[in-house]
Nucleic acid binder design. Structure first.
Lengths: 132, 132
DNA sequence: ATAAGAATTGAGAATGGTTATCGTTTTGGA
DNA sequence: TCCAAAACGATAACCATTCTCAATTCTTAT
C-alpha cells in the first residue's frame, strides 16, 4: 500500500509550501518561504520543480499578476479574486459552477474551436487593502 | 466640434494598429505591424504609448499569454477564447453576460472585498490549429 | 556493499519582455 | 518666433524565468 510519492526532500518541501496554504504563491514566494529552513535551496530548483508539478498535473497556473506567475495546487474548477493593490489571490465559488458549460458547445460551433477549459477571475480591492 | 484626438503621428498609428483588428496584439506585434510603414519607430515608443492608452482607459490588458501581455481596444465586458497552441485570442460572447453579477455582492459579503470587474477566459485549440 | 547510470541540484549565465534613462526632436501655445 | 512641455530613438537596466553544466545524490542490479 505504497502510495507515498517518491519526492526528493527539496521537491517535497516545495510541494508542501504550495499546498500548505491557499495563497497561490509565486515561485519567488515559495523560495522565500523555504529559504529559512532550507538555506541551500536554489531559486532555479523551485522553478524546476514547479514545472515538474505542472507536467504531473499536481499544480496549475492561476495566471501572471504583477509580473509573476502564480500557482494553485487545487486543480478543480473554481474562480479567483485578485486584489489589484496587493495581488493577493483568494479562492471563490468552490464547488459551484458560475457559468453554464453549454457555452462550450456554442463556442465550438461558432468558431470551430475545441474548448477545453475556462477561468473566471474577479478583480477589486481585498478586505485588508480596503481597511487601510 | 473638435472631438478629434490630438495624437502624435506615431501615437495615432499605434492606436490604429490596435483598433484596426480584433487580434488583441502584443506590443511586439504592434511594432512588427508598423515597422514597414514607420521604419524609425522604436519598440519603446510602442510600450510607452500603450501605457498612455491604458491610463486613458482606451485600451486594457487581456492578460499575459506565452510571456507577452496582450491588449484589447474594446473595453466593454466580453470574454475571450485563447488558443493554447498559437495563442490567438478571439472575442466571445459580445453583448451577453455569461455570469450573474449578483455574484459580486456575494463575494463582497463573504470576503469583505470590493469587487470591481471580472474576466472570463476560455482555453482550447482554435480552428486553424485544429485543422493542421 | 558497491559501482554504474539516472535524477536532482546550486550557481550563475542567458534569455526575453518590459521599463527607465537621457539627450534630441517635435509640438503647441504665448 | 520663442519657449516649455511632450514625445521620441537608442540603449541600458530590470526582473522573472529558463538554461547550462559540473557536482552531488539517489536507484538499482549485481
Amino acid at each position: 500500500m505504497q502510495t507515498k510519492r517518491n519526492f526528493s526532500a527539496k521537491r517535497e518541501a516545495i510541494y508542501q509550501a504550495i499546498t500548505s496554504s491557499n495563497k497561490h504563491p509565486s515561485a519567488d514566494q515559495v523560495y522565500e518561504k523555504l529559504k529559512p529552513e532550507i538555506p541551500d535551496l536554489s531559486l532555479g530548483t523551485v522553478y524546476r520543480n514547479i514545472s515538474v508539478f505542472k507536467e504531473m498535473g499536481l499544480v496549475k497556473s492561476v495566471g501572471v499578476f504583477n509580473g509573476q506567475e502564480r500557482y494553485d495546487w487545487d486543480t478543480s474548477q473554481h474562480s479567483h479574486f485578485i486584489c489589484t493593490k496587493c495581488f493577493s489571490i483568494t479562492d471563490v465559488s468552490k464547488g459551484q459552477s458560475l457559468i453554464d458549460e453549454s457555452i462550450y458547445g456554442l463556442i465550438e460551433s461558432e468558431y470551430g474551436a475545441c474548448v477545453q477549459s475556462h477561468s473566471i477571475n474577479f478583480y477589486g480591492i481585498c478586505r485588508k487593502c480596503r481597511d487601510v
